[in-house]
Design a protein around this nucleic acid. Sequence first.
DNA 1: CTTGTCGGATCGTTGAACAATCCCCTATCT
DNA 2: AGATAGGGGATTGTTCAACGATCCGACAAG
Lengths: 239, 239
Amino acid sequence: MAAEVDPAVLASDRALLGRTSTAERVADILRTRIAEGHLPPGSKLSEDSIGSALGISRNTLREAFRLLTHERLLTHELNRGVFVRVLAVEDVVDIYRVRRLIECAAVRNLGVPPYPLETAAAAVAEGERAAEQGAWLELGTANIHFHHAVTALANSPRTDELMRGVLAELRLVFHVMDNPRSFHEPYLARNREILAALEAANPVKAELLLSAYLDDAETQLVQTYADRIAKGKPLEANR
Amino acid sequence: MAAEVDPAVLASDRALLGRTSTAERVADILRTRIAEGHLPPGSKLSEDSIGSALGISRNTLREAFRLLTHERLLTHELNRGVFVRVLAVEDVVDIYRVRRLIECAAVRNLGVPPYPLETAAAAVAEGERAAEQGAWLELGTANIHFHHAVTALANSPRTDELMRGVLAELRLVFHVMDNPRSFHEPYLARNREILAALEAANPVKAELLLSAYLDDAETQLVQTYADRIAKGKPLEANR
DNA sequence: CTTGTCGGATCGTTGAACAATCCCCTATCT
DNA sequence: AGATAGGGGATTGTTCAACGATCCGACAAG
């Protein structure tokens, strides 16, 4: 009679799986703060002040900064320090080019239905709840979740990661903008339509809707962002 | 009469443009060594030995390692050190999934001809020269250059960078394989056909050729790599 | 064979130190 | 007024030493 393994032992092992270094945890913290807008684009992250605030040594902090540089959230300028990225208008254009290429290909390449749409549906519902409460930033987050879920239909860790980065960059753009309502509210209904087309197993229609969405969102954002950058707003903070 | 600028002054400015930190230069060196196969998959990069060999301090080296981790060339294992990545078979599958998605979308989305094909053509020519000399590794490099050029037709820095990473990972896979000739030679003619279709402004045909190429290359590589991993070959080195 | 212990190697982090670079402020010149 | 030069302080980039934590290999015992 073989002895049964106590599940409590495995739960303890689970905790070990999540061990991370201090540098990685600090990178997580900074990533979250940037995403939430607490560290606006253009902010300088001084080793001394961030290191003191977090109670870590400068070397550890530098490792964390190196981890974040690749994610395009920070720019590392030799001898000048590390800054939260300020995206150029050309960055916004490229973000939408990539989204169009990848999100549309993910939809086009869908095979035999039914498609796994639970995550996408949850994101639309999340957006509708946020809109009811007038929480426009949360609506923006939900929109981003929806589009990440669409990309995830491609079932590829590498494109998921690219899109995670691209959408994180897009959040930096939104943090610069006033009036989040106008950038997020109109797109909620369109996400609902895209989802409905996918649920109806009509990827051709979904792709058309998605492509039009991305075109319109890009046009709106690029126009407003270009105005915003011309006014020099994001360059004011900490620099 | 305006005074002419001394070109020697600009040459001096050029040197300033290339200023990089030691950590970044070390990351470059390691990236190149890995790509060239000098540090095979599974190799452990010990801080002590690499740091001594390159004459840099451990902290600087750790920063360089952090820069490379995101590129999927290294894996960083807490308290155990840093290793050159050993790809799993599922990685190879995902690499081809991404290539299919992005390379095919880049070709499909080509607009009005003529397309800028100089780089792609140069890569095919490079491959043909290498094949004439029986330089099969160089042929593999040229094939990679061709496919990167195809992706570059999408004109997006972000997809270029993704593909750069994906193709660098693929090189790790090829370093594990014996008989490079069989993995690169058959595909040279196919690159030539894809190029010809593009030159003939027939992206539909090019996409079909490309898709078939990727399917065949994947099937061959996955089959052989799975055998190879089962034999435990990449795990022998330095570990 | 499995398990336990120990010692050495290595990694992760800290802090101090120093040189190099940058930036800001002030003074001077045109 | 605007441009330039110089100086001082702040900050960054790198090195080094130290220490604690963790891992791994060797060896012993059952």
